[in-house]
Design a protein around this nucleic acid. Sequence first.
DNA 1: TAGTGGTCTAGACCACGAA
DNA 2: TCGTGGTCTAGACCACTAT
Lengths: 234, 234
Amino acid sequence: MSQFQTIKRTLQDQIESGLLTAGCKLPAERKLAELFDTTRITLREALVLLESEGVIYREERRGWFVSPPRLDYNPAERSHFHEMVRQQGRQPDTRLLDCQTLAANTEISRLLQLPALSRVHRVQRLRRIDQRPVLYVEHYLNPAPFPDILQHNLNGSLTEIYQQHYGVGYGRLRLQIYPTALTGEAAAALNVAQGSHGLLIIRVNYDQENRILDCDYEYWRHDAVCLLVDTAEF
Amino acid sequence: MSQFQTIKRTLQDQIESGLLTAGCKLPAERKLAELFDTTRITLREALVLLESEGVIYREERRGWFVSPPRLDYNPAERSHFHEMVRQQGRQPDTRLLDCQTLAANTEISRLLQLPALSRVHRVQRLRRIDQRPVLYVEHYLNPAPFPDILQHNLNGSLTEIYQQHYGVGYGRLRLQIYPTALTGEAAAALNVAQGSHGLLIIRVNYDQENRILDCDYEYWRHDAVCLLVDTAEF
DNA sequence: TAGTGGTCTAGACCACGAA
DNA sequence: TCGTGGTCTAGACCACTAT
């Protein structure tokens, strides 16, 4: 077995056995390299492997940490993020990064089935669990059903605002899900290296009369989530 | 911008512009390093990044290749793999790796809701698109509804065998989906390095009377698939 | 300011794949 | 057999973090 595989196993065992617990910071790379009697490059190979398996993660220039468990997430159940996280015994947190009305690009226009040169509301938010950023979302709202929605407090649940202020509830839902790279604003907000692995969920939400309400680009840390889908719920 | 990011961009541009086409093999790492006037380690950093973004992929010790487009896959639509792939203009291919009846482990027993010390049929298959392995599946069948099923030709559609020989059709469906590492038999069958990134889909299939039929562990190459889910179909 | 992770150099040897 | 990718060494400098 290659050396970095052995290092990987050793670290993994210590984590799984509970000697290293979730959120715990690993020693410096140079210390670890010394500990395993190897070079930093080889050591980093093991760390990167563990990272891609979701066992550990890094924060840019801060170091390596043991990953907390994944969040169970049923994208079809429109429960609020905060509620869902709390039900799993964790501390949720949402931060509004930006909101504005702008011209829709081609892809958004197509998803929302808007005519050319339409304008849409865009809401960018960062969601954290136990202080750790896990989800960067861009919501694109069809402006027609939601005049002045950007005036509301957008740190909570959009679902709730839809319902309470506009009397609109969700109906049908369409999802695209695929592993992708985190780049640009998503990577920056999630505090991961440009190009690291993530999971992208593009959702299109309809109301009960089958009109398109909005679409979301959800960029998840690859190790932060486990999706659950049950067709019996529909 | 870091050097390997520049290299990455350059390669990516050439691929997106069509100068390098899907399935095409890249030059040797030493050649590329020379071309970009850098070392192999730095060059490999760029290649690994492109790999994790799904732009290129490698076959163990054979080299680097440009990735073909993802397969659109609706896991709720029980259409046959072969049919689905052909509809998207590609060549499907299934190889039976192994089938046997064995004692169920704890996780399988729980998923299939079987009593302790039950036996199950296990079918291991590898599925390819245009010669490229993309999906390694382990099917675990509840043996009760399917006596002697292992006698059938298992290179085609299980769905079809269920229906034609046992009069059983699908009903409800439960899925767990998450990014994971490919290891052991999955990595070997897909011809990727141990520990590389993949997408794991665990599905539990019910029949129309809501009895559990089987569960599948689907290990996908992370760059080979895009999941589609539409609640309006249920 | 000291220490850390991020990036990079210039080599090396081995095992496997292709010929 | 030759070239390839897989692995590894022993350093280096810089930008950023923590203090």
